[in-house]
Design a protein around this nucleic acid. Structure first.
Lengths: 165, 165
DNA sequence: GTTGACTGTCTTGACGTCGAGAGAGTGTGG
DNA sequence: CCACACTCTCTCGACGTCAAGACAGTCAAC
């Protein structure tokens, strides 16, 4: 089955036969698929009255385990946003009663963001919804193919995640 | 090599052993990698004084071939943005002299967006830069692996690209 | 020809993100 | 113990995106 990137690559080969556009076969697909996923997630979360960015923060805290708290800095590296954005997100989530800010007892510059009980419930319920949706998207592939795909992607993400950049 | 998604999945297995989080192995990596790619592209384009969104529009027109023109609607499907966003992008590119708006001779509702000579040069020059950067990122994989990865991703993107959604 | 559904583009207002930098606090080397 | 470089969070203004809807134009059925 052909996709939009096949058409894109064919067009470049016609217009710029002097260039090797093979990299686009992988990375343009990654970018476009991510964009489609964003849209699908937005739709799935709207049933739970959650925005994708809210999900990202709440689940990062949920994953941390009891007592469900992380510093803003730790949340940054997990969600790949800037510090200004995270301050804003925490403000809005706190106003909705899903998280609360506590002073970090061991560093007076620092802050700890803690999930409230309601925040924890919202995180748990929306995760199940997300997984159902993602399973449907991945039904195109066999279990073995999904494993291969995950392994190949890991090779590309690992350098970004480990060499801090 | 471990990546952030490995840590994320391990955390869920500890916190929610009742759930099957296998889908995250693939789709969280796609989302995170796309985010890293965005940042890298922004950096690469800044050498050419171009924003990623400008690149997306200019190259879509460049790929169309002589006379380098497409309707706003065609640009929408290629760039996955909404119509309001595209209107705004075209306005800004027109103000910079990289594209111009022409009335569509065959449909008076319609508009054609055409690349100017300078727009074309910018598209061509920045594409080469992007490809170089992407080649570096993909050097982690063998040629055969890149082919496999592209094929697996195509299976996931094709439904989105073909069933209009 | 008119009607009515549809299409293509643009307008508007709200929202979220970013980049740059400020301010408070830490901790190490001299 | 003091300076200085560094870390952490927050502030601010500019910007780009989105969703919803307005509006003009098209086209097929009658």
């Amino acid at each position: 089955m052909e996709d939009e990137v096949d058409r894109l690559v064919a067009a470049w080969r016609r217009e710029r036969p002097d260039l090797d556009v093979e990299p686009l076969e992988v990375l343009s697909r990654v970018s476009r698929l991510a964009r489609h996923l964003d849209r699908a997630r937005r739709l799935a979360f709207s049933e739970h009255n959650l925005e994708p960015w809210e999900f990202d923060v709440l689940t990062a805290l949920r994953r941390a385990g009891t007592p469900y708290q992380l510093s803003p800095g730790q949340l940054l590296t997990q969600t790949l946003v800037t510090s200004g954005t995270m301050t804003n997100r925490i403000d809005r989530l706190a106003k909705k009663g899903l998280v609360e800010r506590l002073p970090d007892p061991s560093d007076r510059r620092g802050v700890l963001v803690r999930l409230t009980d309601e925040g924890r419930d919202r995180a748990d319920r929306s995760l199940a919804g997300l997984l159902a949706q993602e399973r449907a998207i991945l039904a195109e592939l066999s279990r073995a193919q999904r494993g291969e795909l995950a392994a190949l992607l890991r090779q590309l993400t690992a350098p970004f995640d480990n060499i801090p950049g």
